[in-house]
Amino acid sequence: MKPVDFDANVLTPHMARILEARDMTAQERFFRLQLPRPLNHRPGQFVMASIPGIGEAPISISCGPRDDDQLELLVRNTGSLTRTMHQLQAGDAMGIRGPFGSGFELTEFEGHDVIFVAGGLGLAPLRSLIEPVVGDPQRFGRATLISGCRTPADELYREQMQAWAKLPNTRIIRLVNDTAHLPWNGEVGLVTAPIAKLEMDVPNTLAVLCGPPVMYKFVIMALAARGLPSAQIFIDLERRMRCGIGKCGHCQINHVTCCQEGPVFRFSDLESLPEALT
């Protein structure tokens, strides 16, 4: 065969140093990392994060594009690796490969109103797009974030959402399914509820969704009811992923490789994939 150039480190992480590590909720821990070199990522991309000897998992990049060599992640404790990550402190090391995935093309959002719908941990990846959009009102239109979680104790990036709410041209709607008898200054209900009465310039609006699989069907129905075409809806999908380079096979959705063509998709591109929203 014709020789092909390759990066010998393609499946071997670079070690990053943890600058900041703090629990955001009982389940989620926030990390700010110092990378050996800038990541130059796009919003919506992800990295493969690991602890050598324990394992590796896909984790969304949670910060907007940046010029420095830092990276922010939000990790939920769900299993063997993420449990161990929750024990990591500032000064410890974490392995990083990437960035992977196609991510969002910021230029496509220029001049548009954007509705972000985040369910639970879905806010972590969406933050990588929310940051640049709300940070540049000249370049983008009005930003609306509808963020839902189970109880007030599960809410992520609370202070940041409250800060965004004060920015010009920005609406933040925070919801819980249940207040669980905790103090709460947001709304109660599902993320679908506000969509029905949202003031919306439909032709000029793009919607971006990230959350658990069950959320998508209902949010899409609510947006469709408002007349938003599927080409104006973006969805961030989760699949099992081992490599991030389109080889391990786990993330395949029909003929599409989620880690390469995705994990962010235009909904109109998913309509022909029966496995996409199962």
Partner: peptide, 19 residues
Amino acid sequence: MDRVNSDGIPDAHYLSRRQ
């Protein structure tokens, strides 16, 4: 398999053996 492993981001481990 040569095609698969050279596609997109190439797989160094396969290719170093194959080459």
